[in-house]
């Protein structure tokens, strides 16, 4: 089994500083040597963590966002030896995005190249690099998959695919639950919200209507400003979240 490899901090800085000079490669990694970065010698370090190569695990279809749930589970399983600390390291994800994940990242996120070189470079910066929390969770083409898989396994360890299918089927649902730290980093709250969503998903799906879902999130946000949700027992939390879902449905429907 292979070991996890990552770029040095200096290598990441140098790559980020010269995106403009390599734009053609970023938008079509298959055109050059597919293993060019893996030969970078002193720019690469190796950690004692086993890993399965993800190159052949990633799927890109005609509707690539539909592949996200499967790809997230695949990447997480391939790299499930990482601790959250290790998975928050930009050096790791920059390396993976530039090597095993390069063609996937380009196909998923860079299928259209802006004519403006500055905008074209910005897209590369967003999806091949991972500076900051938001970039790790939302933007880097590979790290976002790992973190989706991580959250899915935390919330629904029996059926992580179901979790991802439900949360990713619409952008506003994804944004509200995964990109808002107050919810996504609160496993108990996210789990109770997800329980209600599963019931709805298997039923009439009224709560998934845009206005109803938005109202539900507004209600929860308001309650969370007065009551410390973390302080509630599981039963109290479950009741609060369900009550606010009912209020949202009553208000909208």
């Amino acid at each position: 089994m292979a070991k996890v490899r990552y770029f040095t901090a200096l290598a990441v800085d140098e790559l980020r500083g010269d995106i403009a000079g390599r734009l053609d490669w970023y938008y079509d990694p298959s055109a050059g040597d597919p293993r060019r970065w893996e030969k970078a010698g002193e720019a690469i370090r190796e950690a004692d963590i086993d890993v399965v190569e993800i190159r052949d695990l990633l799927t890109i279809s005609a509707q690539p966002h539909h592949d996200d749930p499967g790809n997230a589970v695949a990447v997480y399983n391939a790299l499930n030896g990482l601790t959250p600390h290790q998975a928050s390291d930009e050096r790791l994800w920059t390396y993976v995005a530039h090597t095993q994940g390069a063609e996937y990242v380009a196909a998923r996120w860079l299928s259209e190249r802006p004519s403006d070189a500055v905008k074209a470079a910005q897209k590369v910066r967003n999806h091949f690099f991972a500076r900051g929390n938001r970039a790790l969770i939302r933007d880097n083409g590979v790290s976002r998959l790992w973190w989706l898989g991580y959250i899915a396994h935390q919330t629904d360890p029996e059926e992580p695919n179901r979790f991802l299918e439900i949360l990713l089927h619409r952008q506003d649902v994804r944004s509200a639950l995964l990109e808002r730290p107050a919810v996504s980093t609160n496993p108990r709250v996210l789990r109770r919200i997800y329980d209600v969503m599963v019931e709805q998903w298997q039923g009439e799906r009224e709560l998934f209507q845009r206005e109803a879902f938005r109202q539900w999130m507004v209600n929860l946000n308001r309650r969370g400003g007065v009551v410390l949700l973390d302080a509630l027992s599981d039963d109290q939390l479950r009741k609060l979240i369900r009550d606010e879902a009912d209020h949202a449905l009553s208000a909208v429907l």
Partner: peptide
Amino acid sequence: CSTTHFREE
């Protein structure tokens, strides 16, 4: 800890 997506009481 938002970096590691950690929150516990």
